Simulated scan of single mutants.
Amino acid sequence: MAPARPPVLHRFANPGRFLRATGRLLPWLGGAAILVLAIGLPWALFLSPPDWQQGETVRLLYIHVPMAWLAMGGYAGLALLSVASLVWRHPLADLAARELSPVGALACFLCLVTGSLWGKPMWGTWWVWDARLTSVLVLFFLWLGHAALVRAFDAPERGARAGAILALLGALNLPVVKFSVDWWNTLHQPASVARLGAPGLHVGMLYPLLVCALGFTLAFAALVLARTRAAVMERRIRALQLAAARRLDRPEVSPGSAAA
């Protein structure tokens, strides 16, 4: 017997209810993302002050830092979806995880690319095998591995189960990414926003960074919801097509032939 689903999760287990709820939410979410990014990106890229040490290269961090947060937070969400799939057999958790992994991989890729572009003028090299950089690279491979694994099986259930197990094992890398700058003597600087005491950034740079982070988070959520909605509708269409094909393949028995 499958474990009982929690009531809150069970409410959204119905695909029709999920489509109706997200259909109302998605336009507002997408509109809010566009509005916040329309404010945050010009503020960060053109109006915020240059850093006294980094100069204009600090503007890369307005994209790099939110992408790093999304790569880690998104993977934590992937692990939670994997728990919902393995423990409660939530029917939408597999679809949401499947559609989340390419978006998370993109965020992690942008994090690595912008960090490399920033590192060249600041560190004098595109890449170093620093503990933080290496653990983020491992996170990127975990995102790609999940995206490939869930699509590698003919039976979607087998791919979803294998991907869920990989996601839970890969979640062990998240503390390494977070605390690597504290555990080891790394080239990467420690946290300057989410730390005890006052942030290490001037408010002229902190506020546009937070606005950009909010905008990218809203866009990330809207993209994942849109992909999940499309996957749900695709599955429903396939189910209808399969049912129609079965009806066509089933021979019709006339009353006369039945009597004979």
Score class of each variant (00 low, 15 high):
Leu80Ala: 03
Thr57Cys: 06
Arg17Asn: 12
Tyr207Ala: 15
Cys212Val: 15
Gln53Val: 04
Asp130Phe: 03
Gly170Thr: 04
Gly204Ser: 13
Ala131Asp: 09
Pro199Phe: 09
Trp184Leu: 09
Gly200Met: 14
Tyr62Ile: 00
Trp183Arg: 06
Pro156Arg: 10
Leu139Asn: 07
Ala231Leu: 08
Phe12Asn: 07
Arg11Met: 11
Ile34Pro: 04
Leu41Pro: 00
Arg250Lys: 05
Ile34Ala: 10
Thr228His: 13
Tyr207Phe: 15
Leu187Gln: 15
Val103Thr: 01
Phe109Glu: 08
Leu248Asn: 01
Arg250Asn: 02
Leu61Asn: 04
Asn185Phe: 12
Leu206Gln: 12
Val8His: 14
Thr228Met: 13
Ala162Met: 13
Leu19Ser: 11
Gly256Glu: 14
Gln53Trp: 02
Gly31Lys: 03
Ala231Lys: 08
Gln54Lys: 01
Cys108Thr: 07
Ala93Leu: 04
Gly145Met: 08
Ser135Asn: 04
Ala4Cys: 06
Leu168His: 08
Cys111Leu: 12
Leu25Ser: 10
Met233Leu: 15
Arg151Trp: 08
Cys111Pro: 04
Ala162Thr: 10
His90Trp: 01
Val177Asp: 07
Leu139His: 11
Leu149Tyr: 09
Pro6Thr: 11
Ala171Tyr: 05
Thr125Gly: 07
Arg227Ala: 14
Ala260Thr: 08
Gly204Pro: 11
Val65Asn: 03
Ala226His: 15
His64Pro: 03
Leu41Ala: 00
Val253Arg: 01
Thr114Pro: 02
Phe140Asn: 05
Gly197Val: 09
Ala147Lys: 07
Trp127Ser: 00
Arg89Glu: 13
Leu139Phe: 05
Val136Leu: 14
Trp28Met: 02
Glu252Gly: 06
Ile237Trp: 10
Phe179Ala: 07
Arg20Asp: 13
